[in-house]
Amino acid sequence: MTTTSEPTPADDRIAGYAHPERLVTTAWLAEHLHEEGLVVLESDEDVLLYDTGHIPGALKLDWHTDLNDPLTRDYVDGERFAQVMGERGIDRGTTVVIYGDKSNWWAAYALWVMTLFGHEDVRLLDGGRAAWVAEGREMTTEVPEVQPADYPVVERDDTAVRAFKADVLEHLGKPMVDVRSPGEFSGELLHMPDYPQEGAMRGGHIPGARSVPWARAANEDGTFRSREELEAIYLQEQGLAPSDDVVAYCRIGERSSHTWFVLTHLLGFEKVRNYDGSWTEWGNSVGVPVERS
């Protein structure tokens, strides 16, 4: 699918990324909506946001209720994933465009989970839901009728883009990016009497991790910064190289999916893994090293 209109500054920016095919603009999406072979998914932090209005033809994909196993802390298996995709009319060859709230955190997370299952053509809408809304583009509350598709049962591959705690322990000393806020990184906790705790026994970060809050990769409007700007942060400032073996993490793996997307698809890093156990696992694990600063 190619765009027929004149290239815009956004198109030029996207063309500069390592894998420009992973991003579409709002203009491109508006032009291609309802095309055969394209399915648009909305993946939000807020489980009700889709129901308040969404891009025409888009379907809801909830990161928690659709992609996480209800019992084990893990993603769904191949069978369930095939069902989730199939009931949204997606087959193995479908072009999937995902967008969402919060600068596409959850959209990037959904894209990353789809990558675990090796879905080939999955893209993000640059700027996410906010960009579409800000441009005054059409929204609807109508949930489209779907012709279910036959999605094959594919075994999830956790080796290429996912890191478990054991992998991270082995990775200590190699490049790691902590994408949480500076307060979370330093280990300051908001302790107040009677308030429920954040869910970690220890505050701080994994030794050797560099603090690069995820939001530094995004513009104010939620679109991604240009390749030059991103290289200035991750390459020049942080000293990372596209050939590095990198692990990214946050609190539960959603914000680090955003950074995983930036490093992998926008900057062309070859080996980036997202540690989805993140701080809710590491900060509660017995015996693992923690650094504070």
Partner: peptide, 12 residues
């Protein structure tokens, strides 16, 4: 189940 246990934390 509908909104996920994690999200319930806000209401608690």
């Amino acid at each position: 189940a509908a909104v996920s246990p994690l999200r319930m934390r806000g209401m608690v």
